[in-house]
Design a protein around this nucleic acid. Sequence first.
DNA 1: CATGAATGAGCATTCATTCAT
DNA 2: CATGAATGAATGCTCATTCAT
Lengths: 229, 229, 229, 229
Amino acid sequence: MCPKKHIPSAVKDPKLIETRRQQIVAAAVNLFVEKGFHGTTTREIARESGLSIGALYEYVESKEDVLYLVCDNIHTTLETRLRRTLTEAGNARESLRSAIRQYLYVMDDMQDDVLLIYQESKSLPLEALHFVLGKEEQITGIFADILRRGIEDGSLRLDPGAVTLMAHNIIVLGQMWAFRRWALQRHYTLEEYIRVQTSLLLNELMSPDETDDTDTQVKKEEGEAVRGN
Amino acid sequence: MCPKKHIPSAVKDPKLIETRRQQIVAAAVNLFVEKGFHGTTTREIARESGLSIGALYEYVESKEDVLYLVCDNIHTTLETRLRRTLTEAGNARESLRSAIRQYLYVMDDMQDDVLLIYQESKSLPLEALHFVLGKEEQITGIFADILRRGIEDGSLRLDPGAVTLMAHNIIVLGQMWAFRRWALQRHYTLEEYIRVQTSLLLNELMSPDETDDTDTQVKKEEGEAVRGN
Amino acid sequence: MCPKKHIPSAVKDPKLIETRRQQIVAAAVNLFVEKGFHGTTTREIARESGLSIGALYEYVESKEDVLYLVCDNIHTTLETRLRRTLTEAGNARESLRSAIRQYLYVMDDMQDDVLLIYQESKSLPLEALHFVLGKEEQITGIFADILRRGIEDGSLRLDPGAVTLMAHNIIVLGQMWAFRRWALQRHYTLEEYIRVQTSLLLNELMSPDETDDTDTQVKKEEGEAVRGN
Amino acid sequence: MCPKKHIPSAVKDPKLIETRRQQIVAAAVNLFVEKGFHGTTTREIARESGLSIGALYEYVESKEDVLYLVCDNIHTTLETRLRRTLTEAGNARESLRSAIRQYLYVMDDMQDDVLLIYQESKSLPLEALHFVLGKEEQITGIFADILRRGIEDGSLRLDPGAVTLMAHNIIVLGQMWAFRRWALQRHYTLEEYIRVQTSLLLNELMSPDETDDTDTQVKKEEGEAVRGN
DNA sequence: CATGAATGAGCATTCATTCAT
DNA sequence: CATGAATGAATGCTCATTCAT
């Protein structure tokens, strides 16, 4: 998959390490989401993990390690869920359309976690940050691959030099659904968001002849609401 | 402009308040950018401001107030610089193209500040956060206005219900240049980024007949480099 | 006198720093003597100093700083008290005899402090340790000076190359009264100790013709006691 | 030899106890010398001993027990090595001269261990400390015995009441070579130190008629160096 | 208005020791 | 006998905020 930062543990049994770290991550995600990294104490993490503070530090060397574990876990979950939905059926254009939809479903579901990474990863030590960004890039690569397939099979017209950028655009599409939810989710439902963004992205917006009507149309009230801010 | 949160001060003279708060913000931006909100102490802010801690607390009620002041200041600067470049000359499509370019210039210049808002605004008390988000929405409104003008003058084909979303897309376009710089700025120069993103956005990408070649084409090496990662 | 390590303080008024540090040292000496450096907590030091823990750290940067302050204070006291008793009256031999006597009085009085330095100075950071050893050497120099005067005025016969060593011997003479008190003070009174050590040192022991009888003779019971262990 | 503190063990086999404790002591000496008693953790002791912490605590009841074991071991080694070199050949004066020389050789070799006892024995529980001091006294007795023999055979002129003191002086002579090495070993080689101290002690210093020249004379450069500080 | 000394709750982390397996 | 995971009291230190001068 992707190289992971090795976090030393005083405990020898790898099985146990895995189990305990899962407890820790499960507890920490919730706490970090709720109160932020700096607002959460190690004791809270320990308590919620069902570990003593001493035990916590047997599986982790610092609070920052917990943050890394959390970020990595979120990314892994994200990637796993995303890859699970990928199909090679049909041309790449259809694959992309489907992948975007699935990606946005996942992002909608993991909003808090996405936010967490975006707001707290700066607290990671440099080395750990690199690993996290590496993972981020890898996930971006999923879309880059589809885009390249689309260029090859002719279903997508895109300058090869713009592939990376486009892939990042798609990723950001999902992230903004989370970190601008205070605005977006007031105006659009997830389905609307998916529909419109996909259209814009797949360039159907400006080529009405290729557009299927149900796709681009936004509900009336929505159109009104938008003007209201 | 936009309603601002009133921050009480023990000092009467409004002129003085204004001056001192400017000192405070100037000092705090640098510190927050460099060390983050939590990594900066009030003493450091005071020292860099040329004030005593006692004096600092005469102009501000809490460290969070400083953060609010900083965020508000960044947003105000951003908006001012952006509005200064807006022209009504030509059709809206050309206005938009120009606005995006100018916006990206500003965002490139203010990368650190943009990052600051994105990573630290979660530390604001709820009320202050609302003011900050309000400002954000207002800036988004600048682009929404242009888009609406484009619909009216026919230079932009866009479903009215998608205006808000498109405006957010544009804003995020600029923000991602900052918060994904670890990837984007490794692959693209600012000019390339502006060119490609504008093309994608203005839908020239998929309609090569409308495209001006120099605009969509990315330098060969870039194309290679992209595949390389 | 002797260069001192500068210990930064958050407080500006030098008078206040002096006062507070004196409080701190006064409290810490007792605590360190009683419970050792590691056995004493910073909170105890603060409490006994009449300061809050926060205030303590305004005058000191670490617990080790307190230790340095304590060591330096002890050395300074020692040196001051020692120098106060020095006389140039008579020949150097008589000066030395008197100086040793006074030195041992002081050492007897400061036993606990001497012990403290000997047992805890290893906990000092390297730099601070150098300052402490420098001070120690300077005190040794007091006796070296007298010895040199003795060589010059002919009242002491000593190879110049042995001056330093002899000076260290004298210093250690006083220190061992403290750190071997569990044995020495069971067998000898201070006066006896002074008398015998001075005799041995001034070489009267083996030259009975120069010896004044009352000086070398140790009380009968003492002689017995010695054999008893 | 000397009564030793009994340290309870959960293990029955005395052979095994002996072996394991030797492992423990060997590891702990190095660690204590390097990092001090308080700076060494029980886990480190266990690891270096090749034992698990669990096992460590089967052979020892506390960290302080390890310290006692270490101190006792050092003292035992010291005494053994010292006694091995003792000869009854010649008069006591010559025995003493030789014993001092051998003693200083051993002390030079065991500097770190000597320092260890001097700096850390204060961390021993009272009872253990008494045993350690007892051993120290016993070693001192070695020299007391020689001194007494010297009084009897007339080769040493010494007030019987000063025997104990003189014995302590000799012991301290060796110890100071270790704990004042920062000064002494900068000025003198071991051989010079032995020569001069022996001379001073054997009272040849002030009676040049009895002195053998090579013995009291300190190398010219040394003499200079001494004045230089 | 300005100063800066004082406060003390709060935090991350350590480590000797235990005990179930 | 051996193992090593678990415990949690204890510690050094920080820092936002206050308030007497």
